[in-house]
């Protein structure tokens, strides 16, 4: 089967999902800027949606998968809002949004 079939089929979707997830995690872990972390999270969520949609089409051919993707999108939006509010608060408190500084929770 050709590369095209592969890429546009389930394998392609899952491959893209995996790469997006990995990059999302790396962003979350190694971005110094807390907004970067936020971006990483968004990437992760999208990777999940891709998987849902892909399986919705290739496996169950039912709407449920898409409903889930829909809910993920909604939650992601809410989460982004709240996260940015926290970042603003952080900035106002600490004059910085460096993820490394926010370590009040240490032992």
């Amino acid at each position: 089967m050709s590369f095209l079939d592969w890429a546009t089929g389930l394998h392609g979707y899952l491959f893209v999902g995996t790469i997006l997830a990995t990059l999302g995690i790396i962003a979350v872990v190694y971005r110094r800027n807390s907004i970067g972390v936020l971006l990483g999270i968004e990437l992760l969520l999208n990777a999940a949606s891709i998987n849902f949609i892909a399986f919705s089409k290739f496996r169950t051919a039912a709407i449920d998968g898409q409903i889930f993707a829909l809910f993920i999108i909604i939650i992601a939006a809410a989460e982004a809002a709240v996260a940015l509010a926290i970042i603003l608060r952080l900035y106002r408190l600490r004059e910085t949004i460096d993820a490394g500084e926010a370590n009040l929770m240490r032992n």
Binding site: L43, S56, A69
Partner: peptide, 17 residues
Amino acid sequence: AFLGVAIMFLYAGADFL
């Protein structure tokens, strides 16, 4: 990136999404 994902949704038959 989000735009690309949207297109992928389209191809996967999830147009509303």
